[in-house]
């Protein structure tokens, strides 16, 4: 059974490392909202040693969420995210804004197979190289012309 030891050691180390990596505290908070709120001085910072899972406002009442952004808004809820994949639970939340995707499990980014910033599309696909297609019609280029490039 001596031969099994390296495999056990490896499995133990890899598991520890994976758990260690996934136990990071998420940046996860309700957005501070309106200009009126913003003109109010920032609340006093919590002690620097605060390291609970919901790091940011864990011991503060969460401000009301606002909808100025299309970013997925999540409340400091009790899902116990500290220590596992956050994305695993995301779409199961009742307060999720993707009601039309009812029973679908997965992450927000899965909807179009990409992981783009909110509202953006086409950000994971590498662009077409120069010469293989026309320059974009952004009004800067003379239509139909090809760029020339030289590197030394």
């Amino acid at each position: 059974m001596k031969s099994a030891l390296p495999l056990f050691a490896l499995a133990a180390l890899a598991t520890t490392s994976i758990f260690g990596a996934l136990s990071a505290a998420p940046i996860d908070a309700a957005l501070p909202g309106t200009a009126a709120q913003l003109s109010v001085p920032a609340p006093a910072p919590a002690p620097a040693t605060e390291t609970s899972a919901n790091l940011l406002f864990a011991n503060r009442p969460a401000p009301a969420p606002v909808t100025t952004s299309t970013a997925p808004v999540r409340l400091a809820d009790g899902h116990g995210h500290g220590g596992w994949f956050f994305g695993m639970f995301d779409d199961d939340d009742d307060d999720d804004d993707d009601d039309d995707h009812g029973g679908r499990h997965g992450h927000h980014g899965d909807h179009d197979g990409r992981n783009c910033p909110p509202g953006a599309t086409n950000c994971a696909q590498s662009p077409a190289a120069a010469g293989t297609t026309d320059a974009p019609a952004n009004g800067l280029f003379t239509p139909g012309t090809k760029p020339q490039v030289q590197s030394n």
Binding site: I27, P32, S69, G87, P117
Partner: peptide
């Protein structure tokens, strides 16, 4: 202001 303007958490595949 020191306030957070926007945030994002990593997706499943990113993790």
């Amino acid at each position: 202001t020191g306030q957070m303007l926007s945030f994002t958490t990593p997706g499943f595949f990113e993790r």
